[in-house]
């Protein structure tokens, strides 16, 4: 009996090790294109932004005067509701659809308007990288004005992803976020 356990362990061991080495399906799907946040930090899209986290993602651009401000106002409300949880296991992620205009400095300035705290990432980067990340989220658009008003709220470890209308009432959005946090 003991021997068979050891044998089983020996058989499983290489599999476990190989499993760690190999990229997960999510990592393969999302990829690790390099993005840059409002503090100029370089972040890998999957490994640094999504992996092991609960995220609410929206797309916007800083020179937008119409739907981006109310959408990000909703993010601000969600930030308030998250309290201490923001930046630990829950993150807000706003990805610019106009990366050439939206430099990290501009994003930093923009974030101040919404009292963004650490844990709310504003992302830009090389246009092709940002485009790829957006494409993987189903949010790539040809022209910046065409970006959607959809929030993508996901629990990466659990593989649960939901979409919500970004212009909905903040309370409803917070409820969806709580549901995703609790894997419901």
């Amino acid at each position: 009996m003991r021997i068979s356990l050891v044998v089983l362990f020996l058989i499983l061991c290489p599999m476990l090790i190989r499993g760690q080495d190999e990229k997960s399906a999510a990592q393969k799907y999302f990829s690790d294109v390099e993005l840059v946040d409002q503090d100029g930090r370089k972040l890998r899209f999957y490994s640094d932004v999504l992996k092991g986290k609960i995220v609410a993602i929206n797309t916007f651009f800083t020179t937008c005067t119409s739907i981006c401000p109310p959408m990000n106002r909703n993010f601000e409300k969600m930030q308030e509701a998250l309290g201490d949880r923001l930046g630990k296991d829950v993150f807000l992620v706003s990805i610019s659809v106009d990366p050439e205009t939206d430099t990290p400095t501009r994003l930093k300035e923009y974030g101040k308007r919404f009292h963004a705290k650490p844990g709310w990432l504003f992302l830009t980067g090389k246009k092709e990288n940002v485009d790829w990340a957006l494409y993987k989220l189903g949010q790539y658009v040809e022209a910046k004005d065409e970006h959607t008003s959809i929030f993508i709220i996901g629990n990466e470890p659990k593989g649960l992803w939901k979409k919500a209308l970004g212009l909905a009432k903040a309370d409803e959005l917070i409820q969806i976020l709580e549901d995703v946090i609790n894997d419901r």
Partner: peptide
């Protein structure tokens, strides 16, 4: 008003709105 409806009132579409 101008933020969404345009500085000349021409109307605009963004994000499907």
């Amino acid at each position: 008003c101008a933020g969404c409806h345009g500085s000349r009132g021409e109307g605009r579409t963004e994000g499907g709105v």
